[in-house]
């Protein structure tokens, strides 16, 4: 059954990003997949309140604001997802007694917003020069009522779906899987599968999201290399 926007089941929407668009923060990025669009601004490392500071590592704080309305428990949930994902990927031990603050602003939500938030955060952290263990790429997948698994679902598709799955993977893991490793050996950094599904559905979505995450990661790399090339006027191979 064709999707409303005529995409293939394993086709993600057109990705678009802008790096360094905000001039007050240390690093920023806008990440869009189709109509879903998220801004992320990163301050770091900066001063931290003495009450909150950790002696051996940086404190990582995430703030998420919705596109419209007052922030509520939904946004706390997204914050905890993003913070959990990046708490290990950010090399916080390199900056003890400081704060790395990640501010995410949803611009438009047309499905797969959690994945977009994670992707935007990765790019903003790289733009800010925060030391990272690895880049994180996220992708979503939905299992529709007829059993078909579609990647990067729109809001409409996700609302009607039997289950929605969001996965985030570290870059090195994606590379390993891409070069022929079994998906059983990959270790997702974030998993959120919700709805009514079977283990087989989960596995199908896992593989689809892994492959989508490869494309997202390749896109992020290209975008970042492009920016560096422009800034330094040399070509990066």
């Amino acid at each position: 059954m064709p999707r409303p926007d005529r995409r293939e089941n394993d086709q993600i929407r057109a990705l678009h990003s802008i790096l360094g668009l905000l001039n007050r923060v240390d690093g920023s990025a806008q990440f869009s997949a189709g109509s879903t669009s998220v801004y992320c601004g990163v301050y770091g490392p900066v001063d931290v309140k003495v009450y909150d500071e950790k002696l051996d590592r940086a404190v990582i704080e995430v703030k998420f604001r919705p596109a419209a309305g007052v922030s509520g428990t939904k946004d706390r949930w997204v914050e905890s997802a993003v913070r959990g994902t990046f708490e290990r990927e950010i090399l916080a031990q390199m900056h003890p007694r400081t704060l790395i603050q990640i501010n995410i602003q949803a611009r438009e939500d047309d499905g797969s917003a959690d994945a977009a938030a994670i992707n935007a955060t990765t790019m903003a952290l790289v733009d800010a020069g925060v030391p990272l263990r690895d880049m994180v790429a996220a992708a979503s997948c939905a299992v529709l009522a007829d059993g078909a698994a579609v990647v990067d679902p729109t809001l409409e598709e996700a609302a009607a779906a039997q289950s929605v799955h969001t996965f985030a993977f570290a870059g090195s893991d994606i590379g390993r899987a891409g070069s022929g490793g079994a998906s059983g050996s990959t270790s997702p950094v974030y998993v959120d599968s919700r709805g009514d599904f079977s283990v087989a559905d989960y596995d199908r979505c896992y593989d689809l999201c892994l492959r989508s995450a490869q494309r997202v990661l390749a896109f992020m790399r290209t975008a970042i290399e492009g920016k560096i090339a422009k800034e330094s006027q040399i070509s990066v191979v």
């Binding site: 708490e87 290990r88 998906s183 059983g184 050996s185 990959t186 959120d192 599968s193 599904f197």
Partner: peptide
Amino acid sequence: RLANIWKRGACPVSNETIH
């Protein structure tokens, strides 16, 4: 059937472990 699988937190957990 499954209603939710929610893995969150810093350390990666292999897909085998999730199974």
